[in-house]
Nucleic acid binder design. Structure first.
Length: 133
RNA sequence: GAAGUCGGCCAGACCGUCGCGGUGCGCAAGCAUCGAGGAAAGUCCGGGCUGCACAGGGCAGGGUGCCAGAUAACGUCUGGGCGGCGCGAGCCGACGGAAAGUGCAACAGAGAACAGACCGCCGAACGGUGUUCGCGACCGCAGACACGGUUGUCACUUGGGCAGACGCGCAAGCGGAUGCCCCAAGUGCUCCAGCAGUGUCGAGGGGAGCGAACAUGCGUGGUCAGGGUGAAACGGUGCGGUAAGAGCGCACCGCGCGCGGGGUCAACGCCGCGUGGCAUGGCAAACCCCAUCCGCAGCAAGAUCAAAUAGGGGAACGAUACGGCGGCCCGUCGUGUUCCCGGGUAGAUCGCUUGAGGCACGCGGUGACGCGUGACCCAGAGGAAUGACGGUUCACGACAGGACCCGGCUUAUCGGCCGGCUUCGCAC
RNA sequence: UGGGAGAUCGUUCAACGGUAGGACAACGGACUCUGACUCCGUUUAUCUAGGUUCGAAUCCUAGUCUCCCAG
């Protein structure tokens, strides 16, 4: 039962963490989203839905819920990355079911990537320690 | 039954599983409980709250604008008045002041604001012109009378010529009255005639001018009834009146003002009485005037705690290392170590939800609303919580997501339910 | 979230409440052998919806959109 939980610690909230992902992460795009991944010690999610892309607050919230719910249900089976999902302008006219299908495909593609950890992070240091000897 | 109108309400429901935010309990695992809206929106008003400013008053600036009430307050709401729309129930209205001032009104039109005369109407008044009539100073022709002048074929005188009855003489001849003959000169106006003149009168005539009637509508005018222009043209109808017209006069209607009744001591103008011939055209979402209201900013307000780093202030320490001021010592300044203080950034906490709170009942009020009693606690996050999956069901679900709070307004919105009222149709 | 500005031809700027005007661009014509330049002419607009006024780009109300500022 605990496997499908999604505590606040599993969320990427701080600006510097977003900045790390944008600077050093690998990206994968689709029609409705752009995804970035960064190697880390646990699977965490950050969502960005620009007001410019989706003017209505209700739709912005709805998109975030769909992305979050999809992540929650398969978090245990995903690799330990930082995932940052950015919504694109076309998403404003998409139906919720289409968004759900799109985000599932995006997670598949992001999970297949082999990103490097952000420099200076704990994951980076431990990996450097492993490869050094 | 149909169409309409007003008011109120709902905003898919239920079950299971997995999740999310707050709170409580718990060492923890977890358990319990609560968890978006009628508009949470736009930010168009108002208030609370917080900080700053402030003796009082005024100016500037801005808002509001029929009256009364409700309210913490409002540009909101309720009731009433007035105006407009609708057969009606009802709906809509920035609805104070244009007899304080300044301004605006394109084009059209005669004229656009103490109006105006284009067409039309009039011919009253003044003038012009024409016709007719009357009066008529004056002129003075015909003519009459009077006066004086002048001339003459008029008159008179003188002279000459001529004629010459008659007388004397033989005769030649002389004398010679006289002269309707001729010539000349002079005088004159008594007569006659002509000429012009003066004075008085003057039928008929002419006639400056005056008056009257008629005509004309030429000039000065009268007129605002009618035509036409415009968004707008200075009360309406009728009769009288007039040159034609006109509130010029009158009647009725309308309007203004005053008084009384009514209405809430109101707006208002329903009724009555009196009065005024009508003044005061429109625009104030033009400036403005009047009345009334408003300090400024906003929870990222504001308050508390407060790391690292840098810098500030203070105290203590070193037998005194280095450097500056001194030739040197003392002294002093800077560099050092420790401690304290204050400002304050990141960060954290408070503000943060018990409130002009909603609910039920009762009472007061036409109503907005108020009062009383009872029981209730109903989001409080900080990148920001409500979703997913499965099932059942229906009318197949619109607009849409809190960010200090509340009262309104405005805008968006699939549909559905309830009630009041109106109009029409049918049946009884 | 709070505060503040603005919207006029395709573009950029004008316009006391009275016919929306330039400049560039576009189109047509003239000039030229052709093009450019130049000259002439034409087309095209008041963000939307109501209201005030005889009349609104202008005044008022509501909405839409854009931009700026604080953080």
């Amino acid at each position: 039962m605990g496997a499908a939980r999604f505590p606040r610690a599993a969320r990427i909230l701080a600006k510097h963490e977003f900045d790390d992902a944008f600077r050093a992460g690998l990206s994968a795009g689709s029609k409705l989203f752009r995804g970035l991944v960064l190697a880390a010690d646990s699977a965490r999610l950050g969502i960005t839905v620009p007001k410019r892309a989706v003017p209505l607050a209700t739709r912005r919230n709805l998109i975030k819920r769909i992305v979050r719910e999809a992540f929650r249900l398969r978090r245990a089976s995903l690799p330990c990355f930082h995932y940052v999902v950015v919504a694109r302008g076309e998403i404003a006219t998409a139906t919720p079911t289409a968004v759900r299908a799109e985000i599932e495909k995006l997670y598949d593609r992001l999970a297949a990537l082999k990103p490097a950890p952000a420099p200076g992070t704990i994951a980076d240091l431990s990996r450097a320690a492993n490869t050094a000897p």
